[in-house]
Amino acid sequence: MSPRPGPVFLERRGYRQRRMLDAARVLPMLGLVLLGVPLLWPNGGAEAMPTSHAMIYIFGVWALLALASAVLVSRLSDLAADDPETPKPTGPVSGAEIAPATGPEIGPR
């Protein structure tokens, strides 16, 4: 069951798609961290957080997460997210791909 060797470098489009998927993976973690912030708030007492502020914060973060997810999903094309783990061989390596601006993409993970 050895993984088939995929291409080591992807052309720019495929590279972008991979990064979009990475962002989609990171998003829930970001959400957990941001929604874990309420754990740090003082619990009751004189300087307690008013409920309205707590609601604005939590709903704000939540809505931003949903919005970010919508943006990410809209930028995922049908082609790339189909089988991200087994990249289809895409066209020849373009010069731009190796340029440090984008950095190399390591093949099968």
């Binding site: 998927l21 989609a24 993976r25 998003l27 829930p28 973690m29 959400g31 957990l32 929604l35 409920t51 707590a54 609601m55 939590i58 939540w62 997460l65 949903a66 997810s69």
Partner: peptide
């Protein structure tokens, strides 16, 4: 506000669909 946890949990799982 504890009731929000019941909705937040599934939302995060869904946002992390990948």
């Amino acid at each position: 506000l504890e009731y929000l946890t019941i909705y937040i949990g599934p939302s995060i799982v869904m946002i992390g669909w990948v």
